[in-house]
C-alpha cells in the first residue's frame, strides 16, 4: 500500500521533464534578456560620459549645429552639436517610409486580394530576396546607380537625403510589405463576403472594408519599417554624403546618426571626448528605437480595443 502511495506522490517522469524543459527554455530567454541589458548598459555608460565626465549640456548636444568635437566653440566647450544628424536621420526615415508605404500596401493587397495565386508564387519570394541582399551591396548599387541618377535628374552632387531615401526605400519595402500582408491575411473572410454581398465592387471592398480593418496592423508595419531605416548604417553612409550640416534641400550632402557613428569610430581613441560623443549618438539611436517600439505597442493596443 505504502509503495503505491509513495509512487503516486512522487513526481512523475513527465512532470520532471516538464520542469526541466520549462527551466531550460526560460534560461534561454533570460540569456537574451541579459545580452540586451548588457548592450544597453554599455551604450548608456559610454554615451552618458559625454554629459557627466566631459560636462557637455544635454541641450547643447541636442540643439547645437556644429559637430567638431576636437575644436572648442565660442563658449569654451567642444562643439558637439548633434542637431544636423538628428534632423538628417528623421528626414530620411520619414521620407523613405512615405515612399515605401504605397508600394508596400499595393503589393500586399495584390498578393492577398487581387491575384492570390500568382501573388504568393512570385511576390513572396521576391520580397524575401530583397531582404536577403546584403546592405554592403545595396550601398554600392546606390553609389554607382542612384547617386549619378539623382545628380542628372535633380542636380547637386547627387549625395544627400534623396539618394538615401531611394536606397532605404528598397531596403525597408520587404519588411513593410510582408508585415502588411500578414495583417491583411488576418482580416476575417466574412468581412469581404459581407461587403461583396452588399453589391460592393472589389475596390470598394478593399479600401472601405479590408484596409480599414487592417489599419492598426499596417501602421505597425510602417513604424517597424521606420525603425529599421533609422538604424541602417553602411548603405546610407555611402550615399548620404556625411556632411554634418543641416540639410538645405534634398540633394545637399547631409548626414545621419549612424553614418557619423560608423565613420568616426575608428579614428577616435576609446575614452576620449571625441569617442564618447559618438557613443552619445548611439545612445540617441537606442532611445529612438525604444520610442518606435512604444509607438508600435500603443497602436497595437488601440487596434485591439476596436
Amino acid at each position: 500500500m505504502d509503495k503505491i502511495k509513495e509512487k503516486l506522490q512522487q513526481t512523475s517522469q513527465a512532470t520532471r521533464s516538464e520542469r526541466r524543459g520549462r527551466f531550460i527554455s526560460f534560461l534561454a530567454l533570460i540569456l537574451i534578456l541579459v545580452v540586451v541589458i548588457a548592450i544597453f548598459w554599455f551604450v548608456a555608460a559610454k554615451g552618458l560620459a559625454t554629459f557627466f565626465q566631459n560636462h557637455i549640456s544635454v541641450w547643447d548636444f541636442l540643439s547645437g549645429r556644429t559637430w567638431d568635437p576636437s575644436v572648442k566653440g565660442a563658449n569654451g566647450k567642444p562643439e558637439v552639436g548633434a542637431l544636423p544628424m538628428i534632423v538628417g536621420s528623421f528626414l530620411i526615415t520619414l521620407l523613405s517610409a512615405l515612399v515605401a508605404t504605397p508600394f508596400a500596401i499595393g503589393t500586399a493587397v495584390f498578393m492577398n486580394e487581387i491575384a492570390p495565386r500568382n501573388g504568393a508564387k512570385i511576390l513572396q519570394p521576391v520580397t524575401e530576396l530583397l531582404v536577403g541582399i546584403p546592405s554592403v551591396v545595396y550601398g554600392f548599387i546606390g553609389l554607382s546607380v542612384v547617386v549619378p541618377f539623382v545628380r542628372h535628374v535633380f542636380g547637386g552632387s547627387g549625395f544627400g537625403i534623396l539618394s538615401g531615401t531611394f536606397v532605404l526605400f528598397v531596403m525597408i519595402l520587404p519588411t513593410v510589405t510582408s508585415m502588411t500582408a500578414d495583417t491583411l491575411k488576418s482580416v476575417p473572410r466574412y468581412y469581404r463576403e459581407a461587403s461583396l454581398a452588399l453589391g460592393a465592387t472589389r475596390w470598394q471592398t478593399i479600401h472601405k472594408v479590408v484596409l480599414r480593418a487592417a489599419t492598426p496592423g499596417i501602421l505597425t508595419a510602417i513604424v517597424f519599417g521606420m525603425a529599421r531605416a533609422f538604424g541602417e548604417a553602411l548603405a546610407v553612409q555611402m550615399v548620404v554624403g556625411n556632411a554634418t550640416l543641416l540639410p538645405h534641400n534634398l540633394v545637399s550632402p547631409s548626414s545621419t546618426l549612424t553614418s557619423v557613428l560608423t565613420e568616426g569610430i575608428g579614428n577616435t581613441v576609446m575614452g576620449s571626448l571625441q569617442n564618447n560623443a559618438l557613443w552619445s549618438l548611439a545612445l540617441v539611436l537606442l532611445i529612438m528605437s525604444l520610442f518606435f517600439n512604444v509607438i508600435i505597442r500603443i497602436i497595437g493596443r488601440k487596434g485591439e480595443l476596436r
Partner: peptide, 10 residues
C-alpha cells in the same frame, strides 16, 4: 525588438 533594430555596428 530593440535588439533587432539596433545598428549592427553597435
Amino acid at each position: 525588438e530593440i535588439l533587432s533594430s539596433l545598428p549592427s555596428v553597435v
